[in-house]
Simulated scan of single mutants.
Amino acid sequence: MSQFERLTIDDIARLAEVSRTTASMVLNGNAERYRISAATVERVLQVARDHHFTPSQSARALRSRRSNTLGLVIPDLTNSAHAALAQALESQCREQYRYQLVIVTSDEDPVRETEGIAHLVSHQVDGVVVVPCTADAPRYEQWVKRLPLVFADRRVETSTIPYVVTDAAETVATLVGEALAKGAREVVYFGGQPELSASRDRLAGYRHALATQGVAEQDDWVFQRDYQRESGYALMKAWFETHGRYPEALFAGSITLLEGVLEFINEAHRLAQAPGHLMTFDDHQLLDCLPLQIDAIVQDSGQLAEHSLRCVFSLLEGKAAPESLRVPAQIHYRQRRAANQ
């Protein structure tokens, strides 16, 4: 037996000494429509306040066919980029649409991701934003007849589901190209799962920069594993042990990979030795506090959230979804700032 008391509308009706129908009308805002007296309304509301009672959201959803909640399936909330996207979505849901956001994490596991989507659907969310962890389109398309589903941050190229992603290729090409233009002739790339669209876009930008600057990619420059901190550490450790030094320049495909890289550099050399030019996709304010000057690509979480929600609500209202969109990113230059000081 649970120690917690779960009040129902029948309990409120009994305590207020009114019928269940009257209590329901009052609590659902229909008292004036059915000409319920002010005294009765106040009595019911006072009982509800005294017992911290709110009407069942599930019951409301059944009546209105809207739950006023959206779901977000995201790989990892410890990733600052994903956390920033979740925060932007939650704020905009609440402030602009009067919706609540329900978040589940996939931990980059397709099975867990599917279970998370199913859980949200079973709780009658009105739509779902997904940061997909696989390129397997049928995993997602099975849901599109049930509710609006939109991809954010990543896309699935073989799917027709609309997406909103960062224009990573162009920004990575700019950042890496500038390092090459300044004289770097060895730029190592650490990336995540190669099947993910984000990984392909970032690697494409890196390779475009090499081609534009006339630099041939070497066999020991590109390594892809996943976006976990442990992978950044392992990749940096392996590269250093193989070459006996750090690369001339290094691009980390995510802030989590960079965390692992910095962990190894700190453990091995207390940050006194490092790649001559460090670059990363995604930014964090703590990078301002490091002795190493790390240039970072900054995603526009607000725009990603805004356009994702616009897609969801267009579909929810029976309209055609807006076209998929690539949101521009910015570069936070720290090395340039340090050179000018």
Rank of each mutant, 00 (worst) to 15 (best):
Leu325His: 02
Ala274Tyr: 09
Glu323Gly: 11
Ser64Val: 10
Arg337Leu: 14
Asp50Thr: 03
Gly318Glu: 07
Glu230Ser: 14
Ala61Met: 04
Arg310Gly: 00
Phe313Pro: 02
Ser301Val: 03
Leu89Glu: 05
Thr212His: 11
Ile74Glu: 10
Val18Tyr: 09
Ala81Pro: 00
Arg200Asn: 02
Ala38Phe: 01
Glu217Cys: 13
Ser159Asn: 04
Leu149Arg: 11
Ala211Asp: 13
Leu235Asp: 07
Pro138Phe: 11
Cys133Leu: 01
Ala338Ser: 13
Ile103Phe: 08
Ala59Val: 03
Cys289Arg: 08
Ser197Leu: 05
Ala211Gly: 00
Met25Thr: 00
Pro148Glu: 08
Arg6Val: 08
Gly191Thr: 09
Asp50Ile: 00
Arg202Cys: 02
Ile255Gly: 11
Gly127Met: 06
Ser80Thr: 14
Glu5Arg: 15
Gly71Thr: 07
Val121Lys: 08
His269Phe: 11
Asn79Cys: 03
Val144His: 02
Val327Asp: 06
Gly177Leu: 12
Tyr140Lys: 03
Ala234Cys: 00
Ala321Glu: 04
Glu141Tyr: 07
Val130Thr: 07
Pro162Arg: 06
Ala135Val: 01
Ala31Leu: 04
Thr242Met: 12
Asp10Asn: 13
Glu115Leu: 09
Ser197Tyr: 05
Val215Ile: 15
Thr69Ala: 15
Val150Pro: 06
Glu95Ile: 01
Val104Leu: 13
Ile294Ala: 10
Ser58Asn: 10
Arg63Trp: 00
Ser159Lys: 09
Ala13Met: 06
Cys289Ser: 12
Leu292Gln: 10
Pro162Cys: 05
Gln293Met: 09
Ala86Cys: 11
Leu210Pro: 05
Leu309Arg: 08
Glu113Arg: 08
Ala198Met: 11
Asp11Pro: 01
Glu217Ala: 14
Thr171Lys: 15
Thr256Gly: 00
Tyr206Cys: 06
His284Asn: 13
Val327Gln: 05
Arg49Trp: 03
Val298Thr: 10
Arg225Val: 14
Pro275Lys: 10
Arg146Asp: 04
Gln46Asn: 14
Asp167His: 13
Gln228Cys: 03
Ile331Trp: 02
Gln341Phe: 11
Arg14Ala: 15
Tyr246Leu: 06
Ile12Asn: 11
Ile265Gly: 01
Gln224Gly: 01
Gln3Cys: 00
Ala169Asp: 15
Arg14Cys: 00
Arg270Gly: 05
Ala179Trp: 04
Ser80Gly: 00
His307Ser: 05
Gln224Glu: 15
Val18Pro: 02
Glu108Asn: 13
Glu217Ile: 06
Gly192Met: 09
Ala13Ile: 03
Thr158Val: 05
Gln303Thr: 09
Arg207Lys: 12
Trp221Gly: 06
Asp153Ile: 02
Asp107Leu: 10
Asp219Arg: 14
Glu5Gln: 15
Ile331Ser: 03
Ala81Trp: 00
Ala81Lys: 00
Val131Ala: 08
Ala184Tyr: 03
Val144Trp: 04
Cys93Ala: 15
Gln218Asn: 02
Asn340Lys: 14
Glu241Phe: 01
Ile161Trp: 07
Thr134Trp: 09
Ala184His: 13
Arg35His: 13
Ser24Tyr: 14
Glu323Leu: 13
Pro148Lys: 08
Arg60Asp: 01
His284Arg: 12
Phe251Ile: 07
Tyr163Trp: 15
Val131Tyr: 05
Thr134Asp: 09
His52Met: 01
Leu77Gln: 08
Glu141Leu: 06
Ala84Gln: 14
His119Asn: 12
Leu175Val: 07
Pro247Asn: 06
Gly244Ile: 08
Arg35Gly: 01
Gln193Thr: 12
Arg146Cys: 04
Arg66Gly: 00
Gly116Trp: 06
